[in-house]
Design a protein around this nucleic acid. Structure first.
Length: 595
RNA sequence: GCCCUUGUAGCUCAGGGGAUAGAGCAACUGCCUCCUAAGCAGUAGGUCGCAGGUUCGAAUCCUGCCGAGGGCGCCA
């Protein structure tokens, strides 16, 4: 009944229409009717500031305009009161019946009132960013968590989403690894130009690769000769030298398995497992197509594309497509991947959830793709940059010894802390060991994910290990706890033969505040989607959880003598639980049955 | 040097041109014979880096300065 034709209309936009038409009747733009949650809850539930802005074109004092609008709308049965206040604010208080009815309608909507797009797009989300031989470390955490939340948000509002971690398997680090293996096992057939058959299994394990890579990288940095050999090996790999290809394939396989396991532990799954090498055979044709634009030139032996534009604030350097020795680079495979995603996958939009420090790289790549006509103008290309995770000293987060922190170790750390917290809880004594382990893992991961997701992605943030294992206050476990209590409550009610009933007009202030909080859910999702900023959703989720906990604390549901009120309260707990579960699912946070 | 990001409570962070800038942590005071205390109620804590500008109105937009982090062709 209250929903719009194309699905659900949020309460905020519904109110915006009511007040918009009031402004329209006065001959003013309906945009002035825009409504926001009130900043002064004691004065109203929502507020409309349009009178202040419209005063000039209306040629009357804002306070008089506000009074007029309040009088026009005040008699509406949806409102308990509409009052003008201050210099021209309009404070809106919903009638209790209308509020309850609205939340009840959300509960009966198949998407709980969550927004749905009218025109679904195919969005490719590129996140995670694993590389061959580099174990996942804390730097991958943000990309993975933020990217996964964004992918889930877009899918939730109705877009078609393709998740691709874009494996780093084709650049210079591959040449370095080949050199590294050759140094250790020079007798292997991979390095014999005449060999036709190669060992069936990788000569190095993932642990070997992880140990070897930093060593070789350091050696290459110190020795120009070795670096030249690595570049040479990279080129030969790309040109198809059989031994290198065979070794490369095995190293990729070894890395892939471990990285899949890391992602799986985070509860993250991808639709594709493409890498830079996937598009290797497109590069030549792509460069030929780009040359038609006339922007591809040669510079110091390398093939580059001019991407500078007259009105650039700072001159954008040319983008390198081929090194002087002919090898492909990061930018080359990125461009070929864009072409593949648009031509083969039919992407309408590609989002890159990658460290903010790569902003210049993406500016150049996107510019090149546009200027050379590689992508149609309608296709969106966006770099969703995020800040660095720093340690308490303000420098990138490291172990005490100065090494990078491995993702797996970090998860172990929070999981163990959750385990300790669980042991302190009397109730956990009855849990079987397998459940204790599962709960600790779910709680630890929730702390980790929510801690990251609640910070705006663009800013660097300080990772304080102590904070991530405290589990009290504004944390992932708090949100899980809210849902666990709701489920426990509903289960207990069911055992007493009670079931959630229709919502009634709120009988308690905490009940009313919770209902109001629930009506704001569509805006939280829309905002997170349009700003590509999951932290808005994390913030909102916490507000709903707080709203419930207070309601739960102040309204003792099962001992409520009035059966109608009791069932209505159970109904409110039920819808709150369903909304929170949906939001936590979007954030990638699992909820245990008990904790 | 140029460019990007950033500066809000002791600490970590939210904040959509609007009224009296909010959370959590830490500190202090209460609350488990009652649906899970990973909780709730309360106290205290602020020149929103500084200076101008735009606006009826600026933490929010613009400019400059200062501080922090980052980037700037043959790595990714």
């Amino acid at each position: 009944m209250l929903g719009g034709r194309d699905g659900w209309m949020s309460l905020i936009s519904h109110l915006g229409e009511v007040f918009g038409s009031a402004f329209q009747e006065l001959g003013l733009d309906s945009e002035y009717g825009k409504v926001f949650p009130s900043q002064r809850p004691e004065l109203g539930d929502f507020q409309c500031n349009g009178a202040l802005a419209a005063a000039r074109s209306a040629r009357q004092p804002p306070s008089r305009l506000a009074t007029t609008v309040a009088e026009m709308t005040g008699t509406d049965s949806r409102f308990q009161s509409v009052t003008a206040a201050g210099p021209g604010f309009v404070n809106i208080k919903l009638s209790d019946g209308f509020l309850a009815e609205w939340v009840e309608d959300m509960a009966s909507d198949s998407h709980l009132g969550a927004p749905r797009v009218s025109r679904p797009l195919h969005i490719v989300v590129d996140y995670g960013g694993p590389n061959v031989a580099k174990p996942m470390h804390v730097g991958h955490l943000r990309s993975t968590i933020i990217g996964d939340a964004l992918a889930r948000i877009f899918a939730r509002v109705g877009h078609r989403v393709t998740r691709d971690p874009h494996f780093g398997d084709w650049g210079t680090q591959m040449g370095m690894l080949i050199i590294g293996v050759r140094e250790r096992f020079p007798q292997l057939a991979y390095f014999d130009c005449n060999a036709r058959t190669f060992p069936a299994r990788s000569p190095v394990s993932l642990a070997d690769l992880a140990e070897m890579y930093p060593q070789v990288a350091a050696e290459c940095a110190a020795s120009p000769q070795l670096a030249e050999q690595a570049r040479r090996a990279t080129l030969e790999l790309q040109e198809g030298r059989p031994g290198y290809r065979a070794l490369w394939k095995q190293m990729v396989q070894v890395s892939l398995e471990s990285q899949r396991a890391d992602f799986a532990r985070l509860g993250v799954e991808f639709d594709l497992w493409y890498g830079e090498s996937t598009v290797a055979d497109r590069v030549e044709g792509m460069i030929a197509r780009m040359e038609e634009s006339g922007l591809v030139t040669e510079s110091e032996g390398a093939t580059v594309v001019e991407v500078a534009m007259a009105d650039d604030k700072a001159p954008l350097p040319p983008l390198m497509l081929c090194k002087s020795d002919g090898a492909a680079l990061y930018a080359t495979t990125d461009l070929a991947t864009i072409e593949m995603r648009v031509d083969d996958l039919g992407a309408d939009s590609i989002l890159y959830v990658v460290d903010a420090r790569q902003a210049d790289h993406f500016r150049g790549v996107f510019r090149a793709a546009r200027l050379t006509g590689l992508v149609p103008p309608a296709v969106g290309l966006e770099h969703i940059g995020f800040g660095t995770m720093n340690g308490p000293d303000g420098r990138p987060f490291r172990t005490r010894e100065g090494g990078v922190v491995r993702l797996g170790d970090l998860i172990d750390q929070v999981t163990e802390a959750a385990r300790r917290r669980l042991e302190e809880n009397d109730m956990a004594k009855a849990y079987p060991e397998s459940e204790r382990r599962a709960v600790a893992e779910a709680v630890g991961l929730a702390a980790l994910k929510f801690g990251d997701l609640s910070t705006h992605r663009a800013s660097n943030y300080v990772f304080d290990p102590d904070r991530f294992v405290s589990f009290s206050g504004k944390t992932g476990p708090y949100l899980q706890y809210g849902v666990v209590r709701i489920r426990s409550l509903l289960a207990r009610a069911a055992r007493q033969g009670l079931a959630p009933g229709r919502l009634g007009p709120p009988a308690h202030p905490a009940e009313r505040r919770l209902m109001l909080a629930l009506t704001l859910m569509p805006e939280a999702i829309n905002r997170a989607a349009s700003e590509r900023a999951p932290h808005h959703l994390a913030e909102y989720c916490y507000r709903v959880a707080v709203g419930f906990t207070r309601f739960y604390d102040q309204c003792h549901i099962l001992s409520e003598p009035d059966p109608g009120r009791r069932d209505a309260w159970l109904g409110l707990a039920d819808i709150t639980g369903r909304v929170l579960s949906m939001l936590l699912d979007i954030l990638g946070i699992d909820v245990p049955d008990r904790m």
